[in-house]
């Protein structure tokens, strides 16, 4: 085989493998066996089986549910996916962007009492980038929970 024909074969082979791997991954990803986080509904549907295991759940911080005690450094709030809620309890201040209505990913474990003990709270930003709207209080633009709670 001439070097030219051999290289062309390599090109076709590499492209087929690359496209095949990509197609396979796009199919495999749909199964959702391995997920980065669960929704509150999925967590609660597992019942007792989920208790004690370290998992992540994602949802929105429910309006009016945030209870931050700066003196004790404890944070209690509920995450919701619209149908089910989970109460989260944890130590330490959350990230600066944490607020009611924002998406969060919480890593922790479901206690026997049905309260989720968080090890870590991450804030999920959506893909919208907007300047503050007129009339928005300046404190809202970069507020921290510490100033809000006290």
């Amino acid at each position: 085989m001439s070097p030219h024909a051999q290289r062309r074969l390599f090109a076709i082979g590499a492209l087929v493998i690359a496209a095949g791997a990509f197609a396979w991954l796009s199919q495999a990803s749909m199964s959702q066996d391995l997920v980065y986080y669960w929704s509150p509904t999925e967590l609660l549907s597992k019942g007792d089986a989920a208790k004690g295991a370290t998992v992540r759940i994602m949802g929105l911080v429910e309006k009016g549910s945030v209870d931050w005690k700066p003196d004790e450094q404890t944070l209690v709030f509920r995450v919701t996916d619209g149908s089910k809620q989970v109460t989260i309890e944890g130590k330490g201040a959350p990230p600066q962007m944490f607020r009611e209505g924002i998406g969060v990913v919480v890593e922790g474990e479901m206690g026997p009492d049905g309260i989720f003990r968080s090890h870590e709270v991450l804030v999920k930003h959506n893909n919208e980038y907007k300047p503050p709207v007129a009339g928005m209080p300046p404190a809202d633009m970069s507020k921290t929970l510490a100033t809000e709670g006290s």
């Binding site: 390599f10 090109a11 082979g13 590499a14 492209l15 493998i17 690359a18 791997a21 990509f22 991954l25 796009s26 990803s29 749909m30 997920v35 980065y36 986080y37 994602m58 990913v105 991450l122 999920k124 930003h125 959506n126 893909n127």
Partner: peptide, 26 residues
Amino acid sequence: SVGAILATTSMGVTYMSVRWWRSIHQ
């Protein structure tokens, strides 16, 4: 060149990762 073509798969996966999987990245 063969390696580069194969590595490009990972670029496609990176681009699609936020659509295929649940991610903290928007």
